[in-house]
Design a binder for these strands. Structure first.
Lengths: 168, 168
DNA sequence: TATTGTTATACTCTATAACTATA
DNA sequence: TATAGTTATAGAGTATAACAATA
């Protein structure tokens, strides 16, 4: 039915196809841009971590335990925003693989403290090297000052004001 | 068993509990910081969108269709990184609610072009207002130039070099 | 009574394979 | 033969409720 309306529709479709995508509104939102950058960086990182049979969240746990031996599951849970049930499961697997140790907290027997095993330390070191390598590649389009600035601004968004001043 | 080793363990646990969490390695990684900022911003946004029965991804679709009427599902799928099967499902629900229209592409009958209905336009306008309001609150710790700088640096990470120059 | 951690389970999100129709 | 979109389904990730042990 070659009506006038139909002809207008064809023109509109043709025009839409010819134009570059306009995403001005979304690109003005920090949340959207964080997500896009995250999705650009993380998949290749996941791919490399898979060689160690680690997921990104496993890496976060190992890295935090390396820097904070003997912290409790409670603190770890809060730090990485993983709920206690899901963290229990995650730690089960790391423990079965001999990467971490769970010990009853002698100061409060309800809780458990966490520690990397020697093998966990080695695994963490390898994973951290991988992370830093990939980081360098993924942000190669940024100058060193730009990269520092980006970290500073992101941390200003999510860290409490006090911490943000201390950090990096 | 109050052995020497046990006493050392107690001391170590006490020390770990007293110290602030050290996350220097993670905080040096852009990907980690993007995720943390994203997780700070998005949950309150989700909460507000829920009042319109929208998820964040629904909002992205509405906003993109408002700015790009008559684009195909294929282009939309790529733009928001949602796989075709999952997008089909998402669009089904928006179409059932009368927010969007799917039309056979007259220039290639394999594809479908997308359009907001008048009600979809109204819903999108409300959601965009919500997004911008929340954005202002969520990034209140940044000065206007800092906010612009943050957007610029994030886009430099995920946009192709050409686009990054144009945007902003 | 409140807290730490666990188990079991449900829900959402994402990914994959096979199919239809158009080109 | 290749592409756009759909259906069905599987898998991963996340959230919730009920419970045991300890405080």
């Amino acid at each position: 039915m070659p009506t006038k309306k139909h002809a207008q529709f064809i023109t509109a479709v043709q025009e839409a196809a010819d134009q570059p995508l306009n995403q001005d509104v979304l690109l003005s939102l920090v949340g959207y841009n964080c997500r896009r950058s995250y999705l650009k960086i993380i998949p290749p990182f996941e791919k490399r971590l898979n060689k160690f049979d680690l997921r990104v969240v496993d890496f976060s746990v190992l890295s935090l335990l390396k820097a904070n031996p003997n912290i409790t599951q409670k603190r770890l849970s809060k730090a990485i925003s993983v709920s206690p049930p899901n963290l229990a499961n995650l730690l089960d697997r790391l423990e079965e693989r001999g990467l971490i140790l769970r010990q009853r907290n002698p100061l409060d027997k309800r809780s458990q403290t966490l520690l990397l095993t020697p093998e966990g330390m080695r695994m963490c070191a390898k994973a951290e090297t991988t992370a830093i390598d990939l980081e360098t590649e993924a942000t190669a389009m940024l100058s060193a000052p730009e990269r520092e600035q980006l970290l500073r601004l992101l941390q200003k968004v999510f860290l409490p004001a006090d911490d943000a001043e201390q950090a990096g």
